[in-house]
Design a protein around this nucleic acid. Sequence first.
DNA 1: ATGGCTTGATAGAGACTTTCTATCAATATT
DNA 2: AATATTGATAGAAAGTCTCTATCAAGCCAT
Lengths: 297, 297
Amino acid sequence: MIDKLEFILALAREKHFGRAAEACGVTQPTLSAGVKQLEDQMGVLLVNRGSRFQSFTPEGQRVLEWARRIVGDSRTMREEMNSLKHGLSGRLRLAAIPTALAMVAALTTPYREKHPNVQFTIYSRTSIEVLDLLDNLEIDAGITYVENEPLGRVSTVPLYREHYRLLTSADAPLGNRDTVTWSEVAQVPLCLLTPDMQNRRIIDRLLKGAGGESRPTLESDSMILLYSHVRTGRWASVMPAKIADTLGLTDTIRAIPITQPKAVQTIGLVVPQREPMTPITAALVAEARRLAPQLSG
Amino acid sequence: MIDKLEFILALAREKHFGRAAEACGVTQPTLSAGVKQLEDQMGVLLVNRGSRFQSFTPEGQRVLEWARRIVGDSRTMREEMNSLKHGLSGRLRLAAIPTALAMVAALTTPYREKHPNVQFTIYSRTSIEVLDLLDNLEIDAGITYVENEPLGRVSTVPLYREHYRLLTSADAPLGNRDTVTWSEVAQVPLCLLTPDMQNRRIIDRLLKGAGGESRPTLESDSMILLYSHVRTGRWASVMPAKIADTLGLTDTIRAIPITQPKAVQTIGLVVPQREPMTPITAALVAEARRLAPQLSG
DNA sequence: ATGGCTTGATAGAGACTTTCTATCAATATT
DNA sequence: AATATTGATAGAAAGTCTCTATCAAGCCAT
């Protein structure tokens, strides 16, 4: 029964019987039969299909909601039992927006010291994808913006506030300044994240608010790529202070605070709103709570 | 998997492998094997046994909690699907304390008018048993005292407030009075509920508070039995106003308000604290909310 | 239009799981 | 000490699940 519900979850992610089957480690006929069994037991159609997956019926969407819950609870139960026996162990699956990646180590390092048997898997994703993965039980927790866009059924722990810096070579225009304004930044050709990233949308908004326009010379979904370009001394970028500090500044590259308006975004840990949490997740939330005051400098 | 968790629930109620198996409609070896499988999967002992059921291990108690939740959710899901297909239908299982039995009709009658395909099963139970049945998913809702004793993980909807009356023959001592005090009542030989009933414990407390003692001439767990004795004219009792009214007073039997102290107990509907509720239960809660203002006269 | 491709349903065989009956060992009860 | 109760175990039968192979229906490109 619960494995059938897992089929539904997989189908919701993959929107494709074959791929969903593969994700579940069964063949396509097995998954098809499983879904059909659910439909028979419930006495309602769950999936609209016309030679291919189309969508869930309204009943199917309700079952999907229940599946998330029941499958989630059953996993949490297993993990709880496992923790009671072996102490905290297993794998913590995490996803973070690129601009938050640099601070993940501040969370994982003390965590690992306390619970050395927990392994980590950490994905770099957009804020929307983070929430999606969370919904589909593919990750245990996410790190993303917690104030701007609607989050859904999650609990949040604020971690720190993102302040923006202009990263540029010291001998470039503006390179000798102590602070710059957003309207000045708007004049500089920038390397920025791709527009599917919330960070980029925030920066676009700020630039537009300062009368400028966002016409980045270069876009990427990788912070490392952006930073390596800036590091050549020929490019500039706007980054959160935290990540700029972490990446390490050389003599020639400066991170200049951007004021007017002083833009601030809160980044936080996001976990499924369900009590109780898995022990592994609960420990992460505890760590985040402990860490938050230190980070919010 | 879910059926194995049902085994755990049955075992928790019955504390006996054989009876639990019977309750689940399987043979004892099947249930034993099911529990063992759970233990293997979880990797921990769930039940302490020494040639018979002794108790759940701490791990077993956690699994029991999860089982309540997961099994409850899976039932709710099924019922929800059923309602989507056939409208509200199925069976509403209810348990009420004896003194509240008379008002159940005020809830069931309008309910049935709106949802004629729902059938009812209603048990008369002590307040403790009501909560127990609720915990074990054996009933959908209970009607009991909502203020006095600890309730556990339930939501409550207050229904009405219980005022006490002395039921006695008009020609008995006190029979001609308009009101009496608890200390006067304490002088009269009474027919009362058995001490496992919370109503009896409340009345005992009130009598003791008035300097009297509770020495009922006759005890029973049946309100009908108590009332039929009072009705002979030779016995007296203390009952909530609501039930006294419902049972109907003859010329010779009077229901005299007891004042000093004016004792009041709130009776309410009690349902599992879980979102969302089954559609059948949700409709009952709606009915209770609608009814409460009318009843609280 | 038509041939090739993708997608999900169906059929049938084999493997695995479940559940039953029968029985046993251990502990209570008398 | 004899008996009854309780839960575990063994083995057979039934049922379920999952696989491979194949099919039919739509999609797409030429």
